[in-house]
Amino acid sequence: MRNRSFILNYHLMLIPGAVLLFIFSIVPMFGVAIAFQDYIPTKGIFASEWVGWENFGYMFSLPDSKQIFVNTISIALMKIAAGLVVPFVFALLLNEARIVLFKRTIQTVVYLPHFMSWVILSGILINMLTLDGLVNQILSWFGREPVMFLSSNAWFRPILVASDVWKEFGFSTIIYLAALTSINASLYEAASIDGASRLQKLLYITVPALLPTVILLATLSLGNVLNAGFEQILNLYNPLVYETGDIIDTYVYRTGLQEMQFGLATAVGLLKSAVSFILILISYGLAYRYANYRIF
């Protein structure tokens, strides 16, 4: 009896959230119908003409669609790789620092960029990367020719990756640092007695202890292969770098909101959602099976 009233209360606690999710997430999902329609606003979703897979066919006939998938995946993969390696190395370095105050200060500072918006950061970045901006001025001290970073297809992706790493690396160290604290101190003591050098301890104790975490994070990031960073790119790109920088999300945004190709935009978005969904299920499955990690 008591148990039943508990369960009733649990439902009561969940209802507000569930209702909000229904209104703002589930209801709009019916809109994916537009992907299969010749959508006419006055007719709405219920009366517009159904065209089957036509929008998808048109999408694949566009030379752009291959480009945006390639861009999205390559940018996302570069970000994932750099986003795993840089914080890993940084956490190892930070772990070697002995002065507590110094360590604290560094941590406080490197976590900070994570909390800045891309709107703000892009504004600053654009200022820094113009021909007479900060970066080119520094290059000129070394006698280098100025570079037009934001309109260069050679530079645009590296800039996206670098600025993303710059924003997130500090924050991502948190998890590694946590894993580091869980290493048994007696391992290091034993190694010291055996005469292991600092580097040897790092390579044979610390790194292996962190590897499972790295692998786990890598697996979980599989779900992000189609997320290359909408807000960042939207605020940084220009037509000249569409070739290397236009991604699925920006493309959907442009075709849908600026060019009113509702069917095409929804179809591209749906394809992305579906593929991401499958990837995430796979990655969670892998994580559960091999790392016994359950996110929910």
Partner: peptide, 23 residues
């Protein structure tokens, strides 16, 4: 332009608008 496009897409346009040719 986006505001107008969204208004058109959702079929909820104001009484009067100034639009471009495509719209």
């Amino acid at each position: 332009k986006q505001k107008v496009n969204l208004a058109i897409a959702s079929s909820q346009i104001p009484d009067v608008m100034i639009v471009d040719e495509n719209q």
